[in-house]
Amino acid sequence: MKILVPDVPFDLDFPSRLPDGGASFGPGGTDTVVAYAMNEPVPQEHTDADVLVTWASPPKIVADAASRLTGVRWVQTLSAGPDVALQAGFGPDVVISSGQSLHDDTVAEHALALILATVRRIDVSLAAQREHRWAKEIALAQADPATDQEYTLDGARVTIWGFGSIALRLAPLLTALGAEVTGIASREGERAGYPVVGADRLEEQLARTDLLVSLLPALPSTHHILDARRLSLLPPSARFVNVGRGATVDEAALEEALRSGRIAGAALDVTETEPLPSGSPLWDVPNLIITPHVAGGRPRRAAAFLADQLTRWRAGGTPLNVVGR
């Protein structure tokens, strides 16, 4: 079995973590691990690979692999979201699994940073700092009784849209700061003590949301799911944070909502086109914070994860995080 892994700047020495200590890998074994340049097409001599591991490769590179690696049986992406692999064109018999759990801590941390930055108006302070100006307007706004709930998470009604493993890491952090957390997912119920409403109650939930956090993946069913109509359901004092995927948001509608004051603010780590073009109007939208898709960082504990996944695969089992197609 030939396994292609990206030449990434982090530890992927997973063979030594396998039950046999990696004895089946290498010249004397039956399995071979080959590193490939993740920003370049897979070399022709390795198009006979059985397994492809991807991480941050451009979509066109993954699509090229899908067309040329005709014998590949399993694609393991180290990204939390498998959208690039799903859209690449691999055959329906190819198993695709995501890197869910590898980014839970860093995405939760970045989400919390963006949440606090927009709630505490750090963007306004930074803009004033560049102007060498003391931003008294923030203190004056906080002193207004009408804005009592707008500058704090204590008592805030936070809705997390896409209540998976990252949400389960983020929700307790918000709870510790006094927020009331509710999830939205495909199925309603209770997860780790948090109420989760289904899609049939989405609009009702948006109407009672002070802070909306999106962790949604990019799928045909989620394309521009946050549109002008749903944005209009949020209270005018509401804020929106997206650390999921940019394609889930109608950016023109979000721009209009922010410029018109229909919502109070937003923070985006992801945009529909990345990198965000220099001419995009989003750069100059008021009350909007933008970070360059850095919430996930590099996958953490990737070697141990891959070792476990390969152990399952070699034993004829099903890997974790297999994506429905």
Results as ranks from 00 to 15, higher is better:
residue 4 L to S: 02
residue 5 V to S: 05
residue 6 P to Y: 07
residue 10 F to G: 11
residue 12 L to N: 09
residue 13 D to E: 14
residue 15 P to Q: 12
residue 17 R to P: 15
residue 17 R to H: 14
residue 24 S to F: 15
residue 28 G to H: 08
residue 29 G to R: 03
residue 30 T to A: 14
residue 32 T to L: 06
residue 35 A to P: 06
residue 38 M to Q: 14
residue 39 N to G: 14
residue 40 E to M: 15
residue 41 P to D: 05
residue 43 P to I: 00
residue 45 E to M: 04
residue 47 T to A: 10
residue 51 V to A: 07
residue 53 V to S: 05
residue 54 T to D: 01
residue 55 W to K: 04
residue 55 W to I: 00
residue 55 W to R: 05
residue 57 S to I: 04
residue 58 P to C: 12
residue 59 P to W: 07
residue 68 R to Q: 15
residue 71 G to F: 15
residue 72 V to G: 03
residue 72 V to W: 00
residue 73 R to P: 11
residue 78 L to E: 00
residue 80 A to S: 08
residue 82 P to I: 02
residue 86 L to V: 01
residue 87 Q to T: 11
residue 90 F to K: 04
residue 91 G to P: 01
residue 92 P to H: 13
residue 94 V to N: 05
residue 97 S to Q: 06
residue 99 G to F: 00
residue 102 L to D: 00
residue 103 H to C: 02
residue 108 A to P: 02
residue 108 A to C: 05
residue 109 E to D: 10
residue 110 H to W: 12
residue 112 L to S: 12
residue 114 L to F: 01
residue 116 L to E: 04
residue 119 V to H: 01
residue 120 R to Y: 15
residue 120 R to E: 12
residue 121 R to F: 08
residue 124 V to W: 10
residue 124 V to C: 09
residue 129 Q to H: 08
residue 130 R to N: 06
residue 130 R to D: 13
residue 130 R to Y: 08
residue 132 H to A: 13
residue 133 R to Y: 13
residue 133 R to N: 12
residue 135 A to V: 12
residue 136 K to D: 13
residue 138 I to F: 07
residue 138 I to C: 07
residue 139 A to K: 10
residue 140 L to T: 09
residue 147 T to M: 12
residue 154 D to H: 10
residue 156 A to C: 11
residue 156 A to R: 01
residue 159 T to D: 08
residue 159 T to N: 05
residue 162 G to M: 03
residue 165 S to N: 07
residue 170 L to Y: 02
residue 172 P to L: 07
residue 176 A to C: 15
residue 179 A to N: 06
residue 182 T to K: 05
residue 186 S to E: 09
residue 187 R to F: 14
residue 194 Y to G: 13
residue 196 V to G: 04
residue 197 V to R: 13
residue 201 R to C: 14
residue 209 T to C: 10
residue 209 T to I: 09
residue 211 L to C: 09
residue 213 V to S: 01
residue 213 V to P: 04
residue 215 L to N: 01
residue 215 L to R: 01
residue 216 L to W: 02
residue 220 P to W: 03
residue 220 P to I: 04
residue 224 H to Y: 08
residue 225 I to W: 02
residue 235 P to H: 14
residue 236 P to F: 05
residue 237 S to I: 11
residue 238 A to T: 08
residue 238 A to C: 13
residue 240 F to T: 04
residue 241 V to C: 03
residue 243 V to G: 01
residue 243 V to R: 03
residue 243 V to W: 01
residue 243 V to F: 05
residue 245 R to H: 05
residue 246 G to I: 09
residue 246 G to D: 10
residue 247 A to V: 04
residue 249 V to F: 03
residue 251 E to I: 08
residue 253 A to S: 09
residue 254 L to A: 04
residue 257 A to L: 07
residue 257 A to K: 03
residue 264 A to Q: 04
residue 265 G to E: 06
residue 266 A to T: 06
residue 267 A to W: 03
residue 270 V to L: 07
residue 274 E to Q: 11
residue 276 L to Y: 08
residue 281 P to C: 07
residue 283 W to M: 09
residue 286 P to W: 10
residue 288 L to D: 01
residue 290 I to L: 07
residue 291 T to E: 03
residue 295 A to T: 00
residue 295 A to C: 13
residue 297 G to A: 12
residue 301 R to M: 12
residue 303 A to I: 06
residue 306 L to D: 02
residue 307 A to W: 02
residue 307 A to H: 06
residue 309 Q to D: 03
residue 309 Q to L: 12
residue 311 T to Y: 09
residue 312 R to D: 09
residue 312 R to Q: 13
residue 312 R to C: 11
residue 313 W to T: 02
residue 313 W to V: 11
residue 315 A to E: 10
residue 316 G to E: 05
residue 323 V to Q: 00
